[in-house]
């Protein structure tokens, strides 16, 4: 099961005693604030988690992997995420369920 916005707000309700409305709003604002910042061209650095960076990509030739047809990929701005040291270390320690 994936972690969703509902899980975050439930935790804020249980642990911090925010009411349901406040908890839901907090989670919405949290992600909206980060989207707004990235939309303004401003990168987001959350210490203890990671960094959301922006990159401008030039257009380049691409291909439809199914048909092999050549289609140009347009220039675009993309968001990339680089996890911080702490998160990286914690995730590396995860061996998986296999």
């Amino acid at each position: 099961m994936a972690l969703t916005k509902a899980d975050f707000s439930e935790r804020l309700f249980d642990e911090l005693g925010l009411n349901k409305r406040e908890a839901k709003d907090m989670v919405e604002f949290f992600f909206e604030e980060m989207k707004g910042s990235l939309e303004k061209g401003e990168q987001v650095k959350i210490s203890g988690f990671g960094k959301f960076e922006l990159r401008d990509k030039n257009s380049r030739p691409g291909r439809n992997p199914k048909t092999g047809e050549e289609i140009p990929i347009t220039a675009r701005r993309v968001v990339t995420f680089r996890s911080g040291q702490k998160l990286k270390a914690r995730v590396e320690a995860y061996v998986g369920s296999k």
Binding site: L3, D7, F8, R11, L12, E15, L16, L18, M26, V27, F30, I46, G48, F49, K86, L87, R90
Partner: peptide, 10 residues
């Protein structure tokens, strides 16, 4: 709240 959300993600 912010710390709580980040810790849940981590």
């Amino acid at each position: 709240a912010v710390k709580c959300i980040i810790e849940q993600m981590n």
